[in-house]
Amino acid sequence: MRIVVRGFVCFAILAAGNARAAGVGTGQAAGAQKPPAENPAAHNPHLGNRESINAGMMLYRIRCADCHGLDAAGYRGPDLTAVVAGGATDERLYDTIRKGVPGTDMPPSSKETPDDDILQIVAYLRNLGTVAPPERPVGNVTNGERLFASECQSCHRIAGKGGRLGPDLTRIGAARSRAALVREIRTPSAWMAPGYETVTLVTKRGQRIRGTKKNDDVFSIQIMDTRERIQGYLKADLQDVIYENVSLMPTFGPERLNERDLDDVIGYLSTLRGTETAAR
């Protein structure tokens, strides 16, 4: 009967799952509480076991991938690579999969779902988290930070400092592999994240307004222009709306950023693993 949205899927609002796990709002008297049963994820026998990770991958693809993407980088549901790398504990992952998040598309697992199934999914997710982000920084981080400040910061924000036209990079080291960082710096137009696609609006008077598309429909469009002004326009009031396939981010090819400087910038970005809240 599946339509588009799938069951046993999204990890939405992990924080809510956490609050529940912590007993917030249970109203129980402290003295009456039983000692909590140990979370099965506290001793997960599947962690690091290749066979278990493969089984977890299959379970993940079947049960979770529709919402969270086959690469776990998020589709309709949140980016789980960022969730895992951002500090979610195995116990928290287990609780969210087991209990779901009320009021969202993330349903609880059935009572019949064996703990092993969930623990294998956790092992798979944990494996993703250890493959991509924790690469050892290479290059000169200090020089990378200096290059970032001169070349990138006017558009990208880190920990509240910098521009807002491009994505916030406070947690980028936890959210992207080195390969992804290289790709997105060398060929930024190859894929533009939703919310950062380039658009040029032409007013009836011929004025051109360039920016990133935040939203649109048949009748209106909402953008951040290159001066960081967020504004909506009715398409009927415009002469033209030009959806561009070139990113506002310049292409940093080898002539603009040599291999050594690229290593330094990525080295710096890899240190950004972020406890501070990044705008999502």
């Binding site: 079947i62 049960r63 991938a65 529709d66 993407g69 086959l70 019949e112």
Partner: peptide, 10 residues
């Protein structure tokens, strides 16, 4: 009682 799809999509 378990989901039985044998695959997924992206």
């Amino acid at each position: 009682g378990e989901e039985y799809t044998g695959g997924g999509t992206q």
